[in-house]
Design a protein around this nucleic acid. Structure first.
Lengths: 332, 332
DNA sequence: CCTCAAACCGGAACCGGTTCCGATTGCATT
DNA sequence: AATGCAATCGGAACCGGTTCCGGTTTGAGG
């Protein structure tokens, strides 16, 4: 049914090496070029990718490992990767690790044996297992969202984001604050954001700040919020992600607390929904989409053997909106 | 560096055909089986996927074409597909069509030449171009979310969803209603949901229902809501998707209309966020995740040459929540 | 110990391309 | 017309597996 290069060669009365050369822009006379142009078109010939890859020992596939598919950050990043890859003739092979570190490692191994050209990994945490797998893969691996000395990485300025947020809420006059973070195993989201926030908070001696922890799940965030409100009763809760903030907002509503007058809430991420809900959520925008594009460009360069900066930091942007009360304005 | 089957054969002192047989469960003596077990393990041998695919003329890859990556429906469906595929040793190759019909078709062509085993397509609309491309691909194509006689499909009961919603809002006493839909080019979301709603509405002679149209974008939905409120001033707006509903809710907030007492709003989809916002959105849940799993199972069967029902309809579920006012309750 | 089928194994062909190398061709120069 | 060089081309090897086919072993049964 579908024709191979030998069929084409036979139809054209040339050797298949000539056809291959024609296809790949080698030296072919004008006459045979025209003939082959016509014949390949009429026969609807398309080269077999396996055979090409078998010989070339590589594909145009870029493996992308995401912690989960249904997250704003992952979706935006994937969109960026996909778009950039497409323009370069590359394809994106998506792996969903389902928030499981072990599956991230398995995914790398599996992708390596599928001989993808490179891997873009969005890990929650970089363990020794990750490093070993990355090394064993024998192909470029680019980390997105988490940094590591031993691998190329593209990170967000999580520390800066934390500090920006810290300054902002202090500026707004808040002093009794809860920081609802995630596990420090997550270097970027768990540790750096908190450290950044803490750095800003330390400039404020009369602050009463308590640190809490939740998972990324909205349900857990709601439970954590209950606890915070009971124990600490802060005027503001800084949440390590927009999703967690959404959970806190929900709890506030359930308790009948109005935002921001009775409770201020902030997030990190800049998810689309934060601009839709009422009141709009104060947060820090992370350039996920742009990071995806840059990640794709970088991994392509790496697979081409070109040089790429070992670590790149993406800037973030403070989005001051309605969910933080300004306590500086005196009552009228 | 990495060993191939000939290396292994040489190390074991057997022919490579024997190694291949061992790997694929052919008839091999216990002795050589043990020897090969040891050697392949020690050498860390992994078969080259290209060579296998070249011979087998097929991959374990399933192409998945989504209209966009950053939509709840797509994310849930992909998660389901990925999970089910993984258990069967399959992999998901994701294509983002970016809401572009032409790119959906190109994606099919491209996937076909990458020799994926099958394609799961989530189209906004099935055109002749789609059908032609699906036929030309020469591999099974499964439609999700949109039906078509000529292809296998997995659809939601959009008509039933529309009717459920229609009945529900009428039951709640609403009579002056706006239906904010999308283009009828989208058979499922645009036409069927509306028809289902209309069927329910026709049982109500004293209703004043007007039909409007928007795109899927929140921004457009907000603009449409403005228009609806100005022109028709309904007590309730039925939106064709949860995202559109979110836009309408936003407009209501901006206008200072309280939901549901001054304006009721409903959506379709059952997105996670609808349970988080305040008030919670009344909507119809679509089983996206389950559909993804079923889609994966079906496409695998199809690629294995097994029989699959030409069309399967997934049931939906009414989620009656807070965003619809009950007008039946008399004032006290 | 012989016979014979079943189990096991090796060799070679094949999948569909790419690439190297050497041979042929074409064309411009003398 | 002979020469030289570059452009073009064909043949064969190769990538790393799978599978067919035929030959050799094995072991059970007589």
């Amino acid at each position: 049914m579908t024709k191979n290069i030998s069929d084409i060669a036979q139809m054209a009365g040339v050797a298949k090496s000539t056809v291959s050369r024609y296809l790949n822009g080698g030296s072919v006379s004008v006459k045979t070029k025209q003939k082959l142009e016509r014949i390949t078109r009429e026969a609807g010939y398309v080269p077999n990718t396996f055979a090409q890859s078998l010989k070339a020992k590589r594909t145009n596939l870029i493996g992308t490992i995401v912690p989960r598919l249904d997250s704003f950050a992952a979706a935006q990043t994937m969109t960026g990767i996909d778009e950039e890859l497409r323009t370069a003739g590359g394809r994106m092979l998506v792996y969903n690790a389902g928030q499981d570190r072990q599956r991230e490692i398995e995914a790398m191994q599996d992708l390596a044996r599928q001989k993808v050209a490179g891997i873009i990994l969005m890990p929650a945490q970089v363990t020794d297992g990750h490093l070993r797998a990355a090394e064993a893969a024998g192909i470029p691996v680019l980390l997105v969202g988490q940094g590591n000395d031993r691998l190329h990485s593209l990170v967000y300025d999580d520390y800066g984001a934390g500090r920006l947020m810290g300054r902002h809420v202090l500026d707004m006059g808040h002093r009794r604050i809860a920081y609802l973070g995630v596990t420090e195993d997550d270097e970027a989201v768990g540790r750096l954001r908190k450290e950044g926030f803490r750095a800003a908070a330390e400039e404020c001696p009369d602050c009463e700040i308590r640190y809490y922890e939740s998972s990324f799940a909205i349900g857990d965030a709601r439970a954590a919020a209950e606890k915070i409100l009971d124990e600490h009763a802060p005027s503001l809760i800084v949440c390590a992600t927009d999703n967690i903030a959404l959970g806190v907002v929900k709890t506030a509503h359930v308790r009948g607390l109005s935002i921001p007058s009775q409770l201020s809430v902030t997030g990190f991420g800049g998810y689309e929904v934060t601009a839709i809900i009422n009141p709009e959520l104060t947060t820090v925008r992370f350039p996920y989409y742009e990071a995806g594009r840059l990640a794709a460009r970088s991994i392509l360069k790496l697979t081409a053997g070109e040089d790429v900066r070992r670590s790149t930091v993406m800037d973030v942007e403070m989005l001051s909106r309605e969910s933080v009360d300004n306590l500086n304005i005196p009552f009228v």
